[in-house]
Amino acid sequence: MKKVIPIIFLFLFFAGNLFVLANAKPKKRIKAMAYNVHHCNPPTAGELIDVGAIARVINDHKPDFVALQEIDVNTIRSGKGRNQAQELAQLTGMFYFFSKAIDHQGGDYGVAVLSRYPIIDSMRIALPILPDQPEELRAVAAITVALSKKRNFVFASTHLGLREPNRLIQVDKIIANLTTLDTPTVIAGDFNAYPESPVIAKMDQYFTRSCTVNCQYTIPVINPKSTIDYIFYKSAKPIKVRSHQVIDEQYASDHLPVFAEFEITL
């Protein structure tokens, strides 16, 4: 009998582990980037448009999704007939979706997303401004992709206004459109708001930031002193942040790109 007890114990131990493994839920790791690209015009390069510089930053870090802000399509300053979102997609081997915010110099100007996954749905969300707070209109570019046969994923890019009253109602519009989705969702971009602002406090009620403590600054690119670029997420299924960093890239844009890796339960 003395030898039977250890054998039974070992059987129960291995059976228990096999049960846990058999019932473990599959997970998917994704990498996301938020990047205000200054219409692909390096601030120290005069009027030069250098789409390749932005593409190199993306290719160096290999994100699965990129939220782009300040994208030109067919504008005079960036070149008639040039679609920066499309060019970046071609240079990085990714899919893209562009969401126009305003007319600009004979073309369009707005935000975009890049995705390594085929886009199965897309949505443009026009963001409001108050009548007594006139400024440039803003937008959201949101896409849906399939992470697996059973799990879709929403990724969105935005660039909020310069005036806080407008930013607050713009966040309300984002919350109304993206928090009702029963799928993992990430929204990233330039929120033009500091971490302690009412705008970010409102976002924090419905989403979670990829970094909340000891986070690196995102502007200016040399000796950065402030954070206004973020990656937010929410999900009915668990999402874990595996890493967060601000990339020290000082040439390509006037903002530093933000990069985070997530683990999503499928």
Score class of each variant (00 low, 15 high):
Pro134Asp: 05
Cys215Pro: 11
Leu266Asp: 15
Asp190Arg: 04
Arg209Gly: 14
Lys173Arg: 13
Ala193Gln: 01
Thr179Arg: 01
Ile200Cys: 07
Pro6Leu: 13
Ala15Leu: 13
Thr179Leu: 01
Phe262Trp: 14
Val4Gly: 07
Glu47Met: 01
Ile30Trp: 01
Lys62His: 14
Lys31Ile: 12
Ile54Asn: 01
Cys40Tyr: 02
Ser197Ala: 02
Leu10Tyr: 12
Ser197Gly: 04
Met203Leu: 14
Tyr230Ala: 09
Leu127Ile: 13
Ala156Gln: 02
Pro198Asn: 10
Ile264Leu: 15
Ala252Met: 08
Leu266Cys: 12
Asp229Phe: 05
Ile200Thr: 08
Ala193Asp: 02
Pro257Ile: 13
Ile125Phe: 07
Leu18Ser: 09
Gly189Ser: 03
Lys100Thr: 15
Gly106Ile: 05
Pro42Ala: 00
Ile169Tyr: 07
Val171Ile: 07
Val111Glu: 05
Ile125Cys: 08
Met1His: 10
Val186Thr: 04
Leu127His: 13
Phe97Gly: 11
Leu91Tyr: 10
Val140Lys: 03
Pro131Ala: 14
Phe153Ala: 05
Lys150Ile: 13
Ser157Gln: 07
Phe153Cys: 07
Ala55Gln: 04
Thr183Val: 06
Gln69Thr: 13
Phe95Glu: 14
Pro118Ile: 15
Met33Pro: 00
Gln245Cys: 08
Asp132Asn: 08
Lys25Tyr: 07
Glu70Arg: 03
Gln69Pro: 04
Lys62Pro: 04
His104Phe: 15
Gly16Lys: 10
Val111Asn: 11
Gly81Cys: 15
Val171Pro: 02
Glu261Arg: 01
Gly52His: 09
Glu87Thr: 03
Thr218Leu: 02
Ser210Ile: 01
Phe155Arg: 10
Ala260Asp: 06
Asp64Ser: 14
Ser235Lys: 13
Ala89Leu: 10
Asp50Glu: 01
Ile228Asn: 02
Arg29Pro: 01
Ala67Ile: 09
Glu261Phe: 01
Asn223Trp: 09
Ala15Gln: 09
Thr144Val: 08
Asp248Lys: 12
Met1Glu: 10
Glu135Ile: 00
Asp132Ile: 02
Glu261Lys: 00
Phe19Arg: 08
Glu261Leu: 00
Phe191Asp: 03
Lys25Ser: 14
Phe207Asn: 04
Tyr230Pro: 04
Thr265Lys: 13
Pro128Leu: 07
Thr144Glu: 09
Lys28Phe: 06
Phe9Pro: 06
Ile239Ser: 00
Gly79Ile: 10
Lys25Gln: 14
Phe98Ile: 12
Ser99Met: 08
Leu114Ile: 05
Tyr230Leu: 08
Gly81Asn: 15
Glu87His: 03
Ile169Leu: 07
Ala89Lys: 09
Ala85Arg: 08
Leu68Phe: 14
Ile239Gly: 02
Val241Asn: 07
Gln90Tyr: 14
